[in-house]
Nucleic acid binder design. Structure first.
Lengths: 213, 213
DNA sequence: CTCCTTGGATAGCTAAACTATCCAGTATTA
DNA sequence: TAATACTGGATAGTTTAGCTATCCAAGGAG
């Protein structure tokens, strides 16, 4: 175990904790006080740390994702659905959403957008709630938000997704592909957000100047 | 105070907590046991809840942002810098980054990208670290990542930023504009992420089918 | 005049993610 | 072979964030 710790950079007590929590499978016990860990344990630990450190996910979400990745009979589309559901952020719709005019309107906006694009998205997809929450909040706080804008977002997002899928498409083997799709969902999004922040700074520098204008 | 609570939907003890933490200015005291709160307190509360609930930000980050928004002498470009710094996620570079080949290479990749685009971005921008962290993690885990891909991201991100700035550009008054830019940084990004997740589901449905293929 | 409410201060609570201690049983080493 | 160190596992403790709950004295309402 100390060797596993050294190879992965994760402290021994933390590895014990992950074992306890069922995030990491037990090593093969060679005696009452010894167990041997293999390459797959190192990979799994790195995957966990990537999701936690870079993806800022909770261990509960990581556990849900790992279970989906590890179920070989699960179709890839459903596995990705699990990942999306777990990866958060988790929008909280009000309990009595139907009573809330703003929420009803926002749901309608989202439904219109998806229908207009002809996209094949389940009615219960968490991303719908996520988008509705953003729309509600923007409307309530007076930030401009239009269908046109969302359609432009959709075009950009589609282009981005196509690029990511292209890069991962050649991966051989279900297990390998499952792991990469999961990681891609989290890491490519992170990378885009970072690039977007850079673009914002660039535009802000040009628009408002770097001084105290 | 109970009236403020009713108007904003935030429980009285939580308002007291925000007052204690300096997130919300005190109301004007009309006697030892009475204070009156105005429209700006309601606005401020809604802003806090938007950043916390939708932006998933910590109260410490919210405080930093509010302080920047409230400093009228602070140029808008710097104010946005503060927002970006606070809004996270916060990438943790290793302490001895220079010793780490992967990190040096990732930094170089990021620097090349920005230089190639001719963007005006400070050397200490947190988004640089964020992107470098994503690149390091992808390379370590074997996810494909190329300069070409990052340049495509950059083009998409630039288009997105331009759209957002266009929509907010007409805002009158520094205080109003400051608040909107801050909210925009957080909320437009959320909206885009949600749309991107929808695009992913659409593409995944077409690529892998919805069944258990 | 009695009772209720308010603002403010202080203390307590809950959950997540570790971290430390303990222990009995090996493995290592002098 | 005897002493020591280390292992895996179980249990308990720590830290931080973000609230809640309780208490209190002063003031307002009926």
């Amino acid at each position: 175990m100390s060797e596993l710790s050294a190879q992965s950079g994760v402290p021994v007590p933390t590895i014990k904790y992950y074992l306890r929590e069922g995030l990491l499978p037990r090593g093969e016990a060679t005696s009452a006080t010894q167990a041997s860990y293999g390459e797959e344990h190192v990979r799994r630990l790195r995957l966990i740390r990537a999701l936690v450190d870079v993806g800022e996910m909770s261990l509960a979400s990581v556990r849900a994702i790992l279970e989906a990745v590890d179920r070989p009979r699960l179709g890839l589309h459903r596995m990705l659905g699990t990942t999306q559901h777990a990866v958060g952020p988790h929008a909280q719709a009000p309990a009595d959403e139907d009573e809330d005019d703003d929420w009803r309107a926002a749901r309608a906006t989202v439904d219109d957008l998806i229908a207009g694009l002809g996209w094949d998205v389940t009615a219960t997809a968490p991303a719908r709630t996520l988008l509705a929450q953003a729309v509600v909040t923007m409307r309530r706080l007076g930030l401009p938000i239009t269908q046109d804008m969302l359609r432009t977002y959709a075009r950009l997002a589609q282009e981005m997704s196509a690029l990511d899928f292209d890069l991962l498409g050649g991966t051989q083997g279900r297990a390998e592909l499952a792991e990469r799709l999961t990681l891609g969902t989290v890491l490519y999004e992170r990378a885009f957000i970072a690039v977007h922040r850079l673009a914002q700074e660039e535009l802000s520098a040009r628009t408002y100047g770097r001084g105290r204008a």
